[in-house]
Design a protein around this nucleic acid. Structure first.
Length: 876
RNA sequence: GCCGGGAUGGCGGAAUUGGUAGACGCGCUGGACUCAAAAUCCAGUAUCUGCGAGGAUGUGGGGGUUCGAGUCCCCCUCCCGGCACCA
């Protein structure tokens, strides 16, 4: 065996070997149970970043571990290739989005391959290819025909200078990122997926997802937000409004209806428009409401403003006249675009009523609490302990009683009814962008919206275009949009909007099962591989991506993509059986202040940090000029803060195994991870020590691993530790998915092996056993070095064919154990006893222990607590 | 603002079911090897106090439950993720 660890040669040899063996090509004919291991596919942004390395190493560890545990493993990879950054790059560098994207994919594929992932590359999927998106378009037409897709208007961010729709990300402080113009809200027609039709199923099926983190399920439950409430209609006050009609609102608190003192409508509401016609001040206010972006975070944090319309509606039960206000916090797209206000029992209404001196009328009381309209108190909104007051015949009723009574009376008057509602809104998927999947609809003046027939799919996105950032490119291309109506053959216009890129990522996991299928979205191979057994990706996708993917799985099931009996089988209700959400990778930031307060961000790789004797940072200097830079916070790696670390440098210098070991060792997958170069060297050092241990052992030649016979105490202890480690790591990989603790345990085992220097044949057999097991245990994390060491430990055999090490129960037997002695819960001493010592003896041993005697000082113990196998606590 | 997380030595983290806080690694200090350096190896390393044995304190802050709390409960601070057109 070669003396030094040379990752470069050994890694490329291992990768060539795997390639030659087609080791990770997955088939559907195995007699082993299948294990579909999926990591969220990357957006091809240009280069791999540390978050990718982390994500894909986690997936690879799980894939390789399950292979050793006897599963037929499939781990695919692909590209989430449509999206905004390609258009931005096109504008910045004058490259067509397609060319930019494909070049990035080629580079990043090489990077991923150099990491040595056990990926079946024959299943690679790229979402921006017609072969992929044609099935997305096919599914769209089916859903359109089933009425699961419909058209309505929706609000977007409009840049009045560039005449273009902006993403929320492109709106900075209310202005367009390129033009600097004040952004406006604009209503435009869009296609929507009727996800609300599946809201109940999406909610209840969360209970079946035992392999999902509780926090993700909680977030999805809250997002779906099922509520039980009432639609209530407020009849128009005909004197002020000038016609009859009703204003409909939805509320979850009909029990507080007697405390309603005004109603508020959105700026776009018909009543607001009517009132503004002869009211300049109101028209101005409505215009003001329309300024700014559409992001919910902005809506929720902005100052609440309103204006009286001069119109009134009547209270459905009391007949009182209630003023109609326009308020900036009421949004047209949500619910009815109108709300009833109960300032006494809703915090937002309370704040608003105080500001505009509107009536606050208490209608709920809680025992022993006094109401005051000068300051909001938590109990005002209490549904559990409240009862009605100042509510006439409803006085004294508790929440549910009042809810039922008021809903009943409203129903009798035909002015309201109980209603279950969801916070979840239908999913608007139209984007006025170029680099996305074309929506397969043709607009015909006589036939209306006609889906593109199957034989005309795919609607291919033209790839040679110039992106200007002003308006939608496709809308300026007659050669794209001019077409004939598939129904009547008349002149028609093709839809020029593209789909939200979340659509591609909602079904790619299914396509991996049959990536080359030309007859459908998937074929029968999907019924073998789905659902995904393990899904791994960033926590930032907890809601949107994961909810949409769950929704799409149900859509595909109901359209029959998984066969006629997909629904009855129950197998295809959910796409991802187990979910692991990884934390972000963060890094320190460095900067210099430029003139005008602008910051120039400097990459950590170009900075030398000085530390004091204890390693605390004192200052940092730019290597290029030796001058000071300012140390900023430690933040998520990003282009804007220039604190991204390119994994390629680490792979080039230390090898993929070191990069993988460091990544896995640095923190458990779910936590955020701070980057540090010194940690990388630690990983490298560890692998060198592993190599050295094997190399030194093999100088005397390989031999059969220990299988029985007399051993010294030290050899027995080493075997005990080995088998404890196997047990622990099996649990770490399989159940806990904490790879940092697995590596730590292997390091401890290596330390123990290094100290073990017996040279008898039996001892060498134990060392062989330890080395073989250690190589297998570390192999999911560091597969290349393990491949090389294994071929030396067991010439003629391949690590890829080995099973995970088995625990030898006999090695785990211990005669003596160590117990801790506490006095009042504080550690005072240790005790070594035979394993089966009874409780009474243990109590006696503790009480007579020197340290306990000293503290007892002749007195008696109040109580002795014995925790078997752990400790004895003497209470005095 | 709302929803979901997080906070443990100089640093990353460990402590899996309420039972020895700081495993493992980084960094640092001292030593060995070397003409020297790198690499490697050995020893030490939470804080305060003490010559030492030891003692006291200690898991973001405040309170509580318990024989015993990093872990459970209540309140607070700060940080991170998401908020429907970044992916």
């Amino acid at each position: 065996m070669q003396q030094n660890y040379t990752p470069k040669e050994l890694e490329s040899a291992a990768q060539q070997h795997w390639e030659k063996r087609q080791a990770f090509k997955a088939g559907e004919t195995s007699d082993k149970p299948k294990y579909y291991c999926l990591s969220m596919f990357p957006y091809p942004s240009g280069k791999l970043h540390m978050g990718h390395v982390r994500n894909y190493t986690i997936g690879d560890v799980l894939a390789r571990y399950h292979r050793m545990k006897g599963f037929n493993v499939m781990q695919p990879m692909g590209w989430d290739a449509f999206g905004l950054p390609a258009e931005n790059a096109a504008m910045a560098n004058n490259v067509p989005p397609a060319a930019w994207t494909y070049a990035n994919i080629d580079y990043m594929r090489k990077q991923l391959q150099s990491l040595g992932l056990a990926v079946d590359w024959s299943r690679e999927v790229t979402t921006c290819t017609p072969e992929y998106y044609r099935w997305e378009q096919w599914l769209f037409t089916r859903l359109f025909e089933k009425g699961l897709i419909y058209k309505k208007t929706s609000t977007v961010n409009w840049d009045p200078v560039d005449h273009t729709v902006l993403a929320n990300e492109q709106v900075i402080d209310g202005r367009g990122w390129r033009s600097g113009a004040l952004v406006e809200k604009r209503e435009i027609p869009m296609y929507f997926f009727r996800i609300t039709q599946y809201a109940d199923e999406l909610l209840t099926d969360l209970d079946q997802l035992g392999g999902w983190p509780e926090q993700v399920k909680t977030m999805q439950r809250n997002w779906i937000g099922k509520s039980y409430g009432c639609d209530i209609e407020f009849p128009y006050d005909t004197t002020s409004i000038g016609k009859t009609g009703t204003l409909k609102v939805y509320t979850t608190r009909p029990d507080t209806l007697m405390g309603a003192t005004y109603v508020a409508v959105a700026a776009e509401h018909p009543l607001a428009t009517q009132a503004a016609a002869d009211n300049e001040k109101l028209a101005e206010f409505i215009a003001e409401c329309k300024r700014g972006g559409t992001a919910e975070a902005d809506m929720a944090t902005m100052e609440k403003k309103g204006l009286h319309t001069g119109l009134f509606v009547t209270h459905p039960l009391t007949g009182d006249k209630l003023p109609v206000w326009v308020a900036n916090y009421v949004l047209m797209g949500y619910g009815e675009g109108a709300v009833m206000a109960v300032p006494a029992h809703d915090e937002r209404d309370f704040e608003f009523a105080q500001k505009y001196k509107l009536t606050i009328r208490q209608s709920i009381a809680v025992k022993d609490q006094t109401f005051s309209d000068s300051a909001w108190q938590e109990w005002y909104g209490d549904k559990e302990h409240g009862f009605c007051v100042n509510s006439g015949k409803y006085d004294g009723l508790a929440f549910q009683q009042a809810f039922d009574a008021i809903a009943g009376d409203l129903a009798a008057k035909n002015l309201g009814e109980k209603k279950v509602q969801f916070r979840l809104r239908d999913w608007g998927i139209s984007r006025q962008r170029y680099w996305g999947c074309p929506i397969p609809i043709i607009h015909c003046a006589t036939c209306g919206d006609v889906p593109v027939p199957d034989d005309q799919l795919p609607v291919v996105l033209p790839e040679n275009v110039t992106i200007t950032g002003a308006g939608s490119p496709l809308a300026k291309m007659p050669e794209f949009y001019e077409c004939a109506c598939p129904k009547c053959g008349g002149k028609a216009k093709r839809e020029t909007d593209t789909m939200d890129t979340f659509v591609e990522s909602s079904w790619y996991y299914a396509r991996y099962a049959s990536p080359d299928c030309k007859t459908g979205l998937v074929d029968e191979r999907a019924r073998y591989w789905l659902p995904v057994d393990q899904y791994i990706g960033g926590i930032e996708h907890a809601i949107l991506h994961l909810l949409y993917a769950r929704f799409f799985n149900k859509l595909m099931r109901d359209v029959g993509v998984f066969g006629d009996k997909a629904k009855e089988s129950g197998k295809f209700n959910e796409p991802f059986t187990n979910l692991l959400t990884q934390g972000m990778v963060i890094a320190p930031t460095f900067y210099r202040e430029l003139e005008g307060g602008k910051k120039q961000w400097i990459n950590p790789a170009d900075v030398d940090v000085e530390t004091d004797a204890k390693g605390r940072p004192l200052g940092a200097k730019l290597r290029a000029d030796g001058k000071e830079v300012i140390i900023g916070g430690t933040e998520k790696m990003s282009k804007s803060k220039n604190n991204g670390v390119d994994p390629q440098a680490i792979i080039d210098q230390y090898g993929a195994d070191t990069a993988r070991v460091f990544m896995m060792f640095a923190s458990p997958p779910e936590q955020s991870l701070e980057w540090s170069d010194s940690g990388v060297e630690g990983g490298f050092r560890f692998l060198k020590r592993v190599w050295k241990a094997a190399q030194e052992h093999l100088e005397q030649g390989a031999l059969a691993a220990y299988s029985g016979g007399e051993l010294s105490t030290a050899a027995k202890a080493l075997r005990l530790q080995l088998h404890q480690t196997i047990q622990k790591i099996d649990d770490d990989y399989g159940r806990r998915k904490t790879f940092n603790t697995a590596i730590a345990a292997i390091m401890e085992l290596l330390n123990a092996l290094a100290k073990f220097d017996e040279q008898t044949p039996a001892a060498r057999a134990v060392a062989q056993e330890v080395l073989e097991a250690m190589t297998l245990l570390i192999s999911p994390i560091a597969p290349h070095i393990s491949q090389a060491i294994w071929s030396e430990l067991r010439p003629g055999s391949d690590l890829l064919d080995q099973a995970f090490p088995r625990v030898d129960a006999a090695a785990l037997v211990q005669d003596e154990i160590e117990l801790v002695i506490q006095v009042n819960g504080k550690l005072r001493g240790n005790l070594r006893v035979a394993k089966d010592t009874d409780k009474a003896t243990l109590e006696q041993l503790a009480l007579t222990h020197e340290a306990v005697q000293k503290l007892l000082a002749g007195g008696t113990a109040k109580k002795v607590i014995v925790v078997p196998g752990r400790l004895i606590n003497v209470v005095i």
